[in-house]
Design a binder for these strands. Sequence first.
DNA 1: TGTTAGCACTCACTTCAATCGAGTGCTAAC
DNA 2: GTTAGCACTCGATTGAAGTGAGTGCTAACA
Lengths: 348, 348
Amino acid sequence: MSLNDRKIQILQAIINDYIETAEPVGSRTIAKKYNLGISSATIRNEMSDLEEMGFIIQPHASSGRIPSDLGYRLYVDHLMQKKELSPEEEQYLQNIVNRNVGQIDYLLEEMAKALSVLTNYTTIISEPVSQTIRIKQIRLLPLDDASILLVIATEDNFIKNHVIKMGSVPHEEVILRLGMYLNHVLQGYTMADIDADVVRRLQRELAEYSGILPHILKAIEKTMRAAEKVHLHMSGTNNILACPEFSDIQKAKSLFQTLEEKDVLVTLLESGKSDDMQILIGSENQVQSMKDCSVITATYKMGDNTRGTIGIVGPTRMDYSQVVSVLNGMVSNIEKVLKNLADGNKNT
Amino acid sequence: MSLNDRKIQILQAIINDYIETAEPVGSRTIAKKYNLGISSATIRNEMSDLEEMGFIIQPHASSGRIPSDLGYRLYVDHLMQKKELSPEEEQYLQNIVNRNVGQIDYLLEEMAKALSVLTNYTTIISEPVSQTIRIKQIRLLPLDDASILLVIATEDNFIKNHVIKMGSVPHEEVILRLGMYLNHVLQGYTMADIDADVVRRLQRELAEYSGILPHILKAIEKTMRAAEKVHLHMSGTNNILACPEFSDIQKAKSLFQTLEEKDVLVTLLESGKSDDMQILIGSENQVQSMKDCSVITATYKMGDNTRGTIGIVGPTRMDYSQVVSVLNGMVSNIEKVLKNLADGNKNT
DNA sequence: TGTTAGCACTCACTTCAATCGAGTGCTAAC
DNA sequence: GTTAGCACTCGATTGAAGTGAGTGCTAACA
């Protein structure tokens, strides 16, 4: 039994129809709606074959067929035709992006909103994180008589601060000088580079500052670690409730529960980070409560080693080609803006 | 017809039972479960009165009664007895708070999670915002050959930065000197204080820097404006789906939609900002999709004029006394920690 | 006069059977 | 290999009957 052209046409018809109507598709529907030039009886025969091959499923005897995860996989890999964004959609995306230049967190927030509006699914965006966070500049500033401000600029132009509280603060001159020295030594370092050797060297060479140095080193570590944490922006969760597949409240609840677990989401997004775009269909996804969901992730880059991920979560019956095209549009838009941002203007 | 003791006892019984079971409460149930020493017939007569007075409602003839918003209001204002937190709950809150000291955004994130776990409702927390954001210190730092870093510390110890991108960057000396001057002039100012007069004065006195001054002033404004934006943390939205009152998916969806509108949430939280604690019951709340919800807000302070709000959103049939006690516990815990934070260590 | 027992009545909810109809699989004819 | 025809399946809908929690009213009681 081979997957001939006609079978493929029928499979495609089933998928298209099911994506549109969310109802099992019968042979007569296909015969009427899609002029394949064959009768419903013939289509029935082919459908029987397609079911045997695992591409479609009959939810119960005497019902129409719905695509299986395998069917969607075939569709996504070979059958799906690329959609172009409509000029309105393109315009909409650009407006969002341009209106929010400058503040990367608001930009991503708005992007997530836009994507959920355009796709009618749930959007999750992770803020860009550098694979290796490298110190570009370190400064110490006296803040008041009990605290010093540590400012670290990373090579991809993120700025992080930390207020270091201490009993008594040395003279301004001293703080600035110490800052300059640390800057001199640690420039270009990642957290991993600041190992015991480096610390010992600093302790030796900066013996005169032994009162405050430990505080400062600890603050540097804290700050660098915090920079590694991933921030997420999510939008359009309510769209889930519009999907008939989640009209069962228990199902919806457990999905919502999952969507509140940051770790799970981060893992999910990370899994797609190697490729430009990745599509996880139904049970290809390991998370139990998302077995009826597909997740499409796209990676956006910002400089050489800083990247974030956009994920669209919808039912397996999602409009894949629409989502893919919207995602493509968004990624190219955002990368354009981030290119500018990468040269300055980032705030975190 | 007066609201005598017996009527109040019956009303209280109805409310307690309804909060527990979510089912309309009948006279026989009350007679059996709460030994008021009167028969169901008498209770029926009293209930009829209570209904006439507007405290309870009969969803349909021949069903039990449920409390009206007015009934809940009476309960909340006069009948509700304060619950004490159990030692476990108290411990749980303290653990959360202590485990996350130092990073205010993570702290609030975890707090929101904890509150939604303890209450089984949805929690929204706004990050503390100063009523009047006052500049404590301004610094300019050369970052690289095309950008300067602006650092503003506000009087309540929040740190904000902004990378100012410009064609060519003056010499380090110049930047530092300019920074010192701005710091000298603008210390203690709010955004409102930096009016046209001040700007003109700066432009006159810093004429030699006319090439970069406008960039910097614009950056200061942007940064101060961004500091005013409210950040929200939300958790436990999935709890909504466990409430029988939202088993109607349409209702649930429209509530979820509302919960994604930041403006609405901010307004909601702001409305409670004047009081320590505020309870909005059902339609006392203006938002249409929240007419079946009650919102309890509590304000937490951090220093004299910096405050944030915690809001718990649940069905009008929420366990008010439980929520109030958990909120009280949380506020006192968080204020303790923020007191320390306010003296340093905040990162934004 | 307030309380209570008793009873008729209401109405949402459940159950069950009948019916409907979309869809299938199989067979026989083309 | 394709198709028309037909019996069959089974979820969904409809409607009638029954159930039960709950009410309001009345008359009797303390």
